[in-house]
Simulated assay, not measured.
Amino acid sequence: MKKWYRDYGLQARMVLTMLLLAGLYLIFLVVLSEYGGIGTYGLMVFAGFFLLIQFFFSDKFALWSMGGRIVSEQEEPRLHETVSRLCAIADLPKPKIAIVDSNIPNAFATGRSKDSAVVAVTTSLKQKLSQPELEAVLAHELSHVKNRDMLVITIASFLSTVAFFLVRNMLFFGMGGGNRDRDRGAGAAIIVFVISLAVWIISFLLIRALSRYREFAADRGSAVITGQPKHLASALMTISGVMERVPSRDLREVEGMNAFFIIPAISGDLIMNLFSTHPTVGARIRALEDMERKMEF
């Protein structure tokens, strides 16, 4: 196994983001404890159950939503051989491999652990990329598995989901019960609503930032596994160029999977980087070029 490349600046940003999330959620729990009622705790239990279902069945849901299917070694011998070789280098158990019949060149990894992971590629990706580029993309997805990104993002998003449910519950069902309860609890309800809304918005932005850092980490993992950062940079440019020619209707159909993709499928002409799950392609390529220069010495 090759020595895993450590980018301490990137790791520091990820740790800082997690600490900010932890601090935000601690404040949120204090407010709920002080002003929330029994219904609030029930809502938290419901949100926890919802996220557990998402966590344990995310791989099946992701494949189902994309129309992907698990393929055997007999069906895709070259793909299986490539993944097996990369897993040996990365010291990973071999994941299941899936193919998605799509004209959008992309790949994604899902699964709650290294032993239950699935790596999927689209038919368009196989057609558009050279073998070295395809290997670099597969190594990127395997890096997500090695870094346990599904676990990290699920944990980070737990109380954000609770806050979202609280906001929606209060908007649609009101903030109080009878007249007496309403008069007595209006102030507490407003506090919970405002704090929940703030937690939801701030955590949404922090989780997006965390997701972008994880993409940089997976890019670096790909460079370590393959030893060739330029191949992933080339693959990103190829995928990005093809994506621009894909009809907007096709992109909109898979936008819900953007957090999983190596490059998000975006139907609009402009997206604010602040809300994106991924860094810009240009930023990722510059980081890979920097790694290429460091590896030369």
Score class of each variant (00 low, 15 high):
residue 7 D to L: 02
residue 8 Y to S: 14
residue 11 Q to F: 10
residue 14 M to R: 10
residue 14 M to Y: 02
residue 18 M to S: 08
residue 37 G to W: 02
residue 43 L to N: 10
residue 44 M to T: 12
residue 44 M to P: 05
residue 48 G to F: 14
residue 51 L to S: 13
residue 55 F to T: 09
residue 56 F to A: 07
residue 57 F to E: 07
residue 59 D to G: 11
residue 63 L to F: 01
residue 67 G to E: 13
residue 67 G to H: 06
residue 79 L to S: 04
residue 80 H to S: 06
residue 81 E to R: 14
residue 81 E to H: 09
residue 88 A to P: 01
residue 90 A to N: 10
residue 91 D to T: 07
residue 101 D to K: 07
residue 101 D to Q: 09
residue 104 I to L: 13
residue 105 P to Q: 09
residue 110 T to Q: 11
residue 111 G to S: 09
residue 117 A to T: 08
residue 117 A to K: 12
residue 119 V to S: 10
residue 124 S to K: 15
residue 131 Q to N: 12
residue 132 P to F: 00
residue 135 E to R: 08
residue 141 E to T: 07
residue 142 L to W: 01
residue 142 L to Q: 03
residue 148 R to E: 13
residue 154 T to Q: 06
residue 157 S to W: 07
residue 158 F to K: 01
residue 162 V to E: 01
residue 164 F to M: 15
residue 165 F to K: 01
residue 165 F to I: 07
residue 166 L to I: 12
residue 170 M to Q: 12
residue 178 G to V: 03
residue 180 R to A: 15
residue 183 D to Q: 12
residue 185 G to I: 00
residue 188 A to R: 13
residue 202 I to N: 04
residue 202 I to P: 05
residue 203 S to C: 08
residue 204 F to I: 05
residue 205 L to S: 03
residue 211 S to T: 10
residue 215 E to N: 08
residue 218 A to W: 03
residue 222 S to R: 05
residue 224 V to W: 10
residue 228 Q to N: 15
residue 231 H to A: 15
residue 236 L to P: 00
residue 238 T to E: 15
residue 247 P to I: 09
residue 248 S to I: 06
residue 252 R to I: 12
residue 253 E to Q: 13
residue 262 I to L: 09
residue 268 G to S: 14
residue 268 G to D: 13
residue 270 L to K: 15
residue 272 M to G: 14
residue 276 S to Y: 00
residue 280 T to F: 00
residue 292 E to S: 12
residue 293 R to D: 06
residue 297 F to Q: 13
